[in-house]
Design a protein around this nucleic acid. Structure first.
Length: 232
DNA sequence: TTGTGTTTTACGACCTCC
DNA sequence: GGAGGTCGTAAAACACAA
């Protein structure tokens, strides 16, 4: 029998047959689930996508923790705060769920072991999503810092390029002046330098030329310090 | 009240490990 | 091969604005 197509047909027809039969009896809710579908996953090599049987939205709402079965159909129930708290506590201790632990938790909380397993699966998925979001936020802030740093460096490059141009102009002027003087006094055998007026520097006379000028910028040094931490 | 977006519960399909 | 994992998604439950 093709359970898949039967289920699909039942869904199409709006049938209320659910792929599980239920036997519930508990202080709050125990669901003993007997799978009648029988074709869990191993249906040959070809993957068969079967439509799942879902209840229609027309069914009335359930009270939290209420019995999970009505008119032969499973009802989705919200777990009580106490159950969720206990599950959260258990999840906090260990994200994985061995079968012994699952049975124990299910027994303590009055839940079906399957519910406990499903809850842990969903909880792991939420935890993973949260981790991914955190990771994304961290990477984004790092990226933003890198972009800001890059802008700062680019503006520094512009500034330094300007300074370099000025320096080159100054050098050119000086060498032109020297050349001029040497041409004028070419007939004389006297030393030029001895009678010359001192050469007048037009920029940064106080600059210490033993240190690369870009390192004299405080911003440069500060940036060097703050950038070290980014590449750990 | 109702439409809509989000969260929670549950499941099917598939994968991995023992 | 079975148990238990992830992933994607349906549908109920819930929150909340209009």
């Amino acid at each position: 029998m093709d359970h898949g197509s039967l289920m699909e047909d039942q869904m199409m027809l709006g049938s209320q047959v659910y792929p599980y039969t239920t036997q519930t009896q508990h202080s709050q809710c125990i669901i003993i689930v007997n799978q009648i579908d029988g074709s869990s996953s191993g249906e040959g090599s070809k993957p068969v996508k079967r439509r799942r049987k879902r209840r229609s939205k027309g069914s009335s709402a359930t009270i939290e923790g209420d019995v999970a079965e009505l008119g032969g159909m499973l009802r989705k129930r919200k777990l009580t705060d106490e159950q969720v708290n206990m599950l959260e506590y258990s999840f906090g201790n260990e994200h994985k769920l061995e079968s012994g632990r699952k049975e124990k938790i299910a027994g303590e909380l009055g839940l079906d072991p399957r519910q406990v397993a499903v809850w842990f699966q969903n909880r792991r998925a939420r935890w993973k999503n949260k981790k991914l979001e955190e990771e994304y936020a961290k990477l984004k802030s790092h990226h933003d810092a890198v972009v800001i740093g890059q802008c700062q460096l680019e503006s520094q490059v512009l500034k330094l390029t300007e300074q370099l141009n000025e320096a080159q102009n100054e050098i050119r002027k000086l060498s032109e002046r020297l050349e001029e003087k040497s041409t004028n006094s070419s007939s004389s055998s006297l030393s030029v330098e001895a009678n010359d007026a001192p050469i007048e520097f037009e920029f940064a006379p106080e600059t210490n030329y033993n240190i690369p000028f870009y390192m004299l910028d405080n911003n440069y040094l500060q940036n060097m310090e703050s950038w070290d931490g980014l590449y750990v």
